[in-house]
Amino acid sequence: MAATQEEIVAGLAEIVNEIAGIPVEDVELDKSFTDDLDVDSLSMVEVVVAAEERFDVKIPDDDVKDLKTVGDATNYILKNQG
């Protein structure tokens, strides 16, 4: 069953916590991965791969650069999840 927006944000929060050590509660829709959450370009790849597995979605390299905020990633997953 497809994940809801709330479930996706919670899942991304766990992933970002695991990869970058950011507290789960800091991961909110309007937060920028790079500027607010200290997720650099390489960690972002790890976040994307973990999100792909968790939400059964493909996020090609060309699309990763458009995922600036947690909201961007959430919307992308909502639209494309299997």
Binding site: S41, L42, M44, V45, E46, V48, V49, D61, V64, K65
Partner: peptide
Amino acid sequence: QEGQAVFRWAVF
């Protein structure tokens, strides 16, 4: 090189 694409391929 394209850093992110290479990183993803190299790691995973």
